[in-house]
């Protein structure tokens, strides 16, 4: 489905050139569920923007369903994003002044579809949110907003969904519910690409790409043992972080007393 060869993306920052992507090769098949992980500045967001046809590479080739993306006009790119790709963002990116159902219908409007309401309601039903269809985002919880964002991403039945830190702004339980929606979508044949630095989220994919300095360091299928290992690592990391936070609190309490 996705085939990239020697992909580069360079930015000029004053005198220096930042190599956000530095010769990336990658193939993704239809129906995969992939996590892209890495520290900040590793190039994972840049890779997502390029794969999501929001940006153009400095060099290299990118084929989407055997179509050379660099040969497409901006109008064709818009159509590709509209029909084939859905985006879910960490901060939901909903339009605050419009109701949930109107937010979901937005891609249908740009697809010039007539009866957008019915399809938007169907998408909301798939994420279990029909009862909140006529509420505005500011009347909803974080989990509900993210579900609206997912409904917007799937309303045009795309073959590929990008989720950029989809649980980053949610509590653990809500995060799990959101991940369940992604698993369901994956089960129905949609390709899912998760961009995250949370290992317990990344571990839920079939395949993990680890990035650093614009390169893919590791591209590995996740088997059962590896998944347990990653989850344990993330729990350990979490415990270390919690212990550290506790320590800080105690230290603060001691100084105050």
């Amino acid at each position: 489905m996705i085939e990239i060869r020697n992909l580069h993306k360079h930015y000029r920052m004053g005198e220096s050139v930042v190599r956000a992507l530095d010769g990336v090769d990658l193939s993704i098949a239809q129906g995969e569920m992939i996590s892209i992980t890495g520290p900040s500045g590793s190039g994972k967001s840049t890779l997502m923007h390029l794969l999501g046809c929001l940006d153009r590479p400095t060099s290299g080739t990118f084929r989407f369903d055997n179509v050379l993306v660099s040969s497409l006009s901006s109008r064709e790119l818009a159509k590709l994003r509209n029909r084939q790709i859905g985006f879910v963002f960490q901060t939901f990116n909903l339009i605050e002044r419009t109701r949930a159902v109107d937010n979901v219908a937005l891609p249908l409007v740009y697809a010039r579809q007539r009866n957008t309401h019915r399809s938007a309601m169907a998408a909301l039903e798939r994420v279990g949110l029909t009862q909140r269809a006529h509420h505005k985002p500011n009347e909803m919880s974080g989990g509900e907003r993210q579900r609206v964002a997912i409904a917007r991403a799937i309303v045009n039945n795309p073959s590929l969904i990008f989720a950029d830190e989809p649980t980053g702004n949610l509590d653990t339980r809500t995060g799990e519910q959101i991940m369940q929606i992604f698993h369901n979508l994956h089960a129905s044949g949609v390709t899912i690409i998760l961009v995250t630095h949370e290992m317990n989220i990344a571990a839920q994919a079939q395949r993990i790409l680890k990035m650093r300095d614009g390169k893919i360091l590791e591209d590995r299928a996740v088997d059962h043992d590896h998944r347990q290992e990653l989850i344990a690592e993330s729990v350990e990391d979490r415990n270390t972080a919690l212990n550290y936070a506790d320590g800080l609190r105690k230290q603060k309490a001691d100084t105050e007393s």
Partner: peptide, 14 residues
């Protein structure tokens, strides 16, 4: 600005 970015992401043309 962000809203415009979202609109472009979901398929709006210039």
């Amino acid at each position: 600005t962000r809203e415009i970015g979202v609109r472009i992401a979901v398929g709006a043309r210039s």
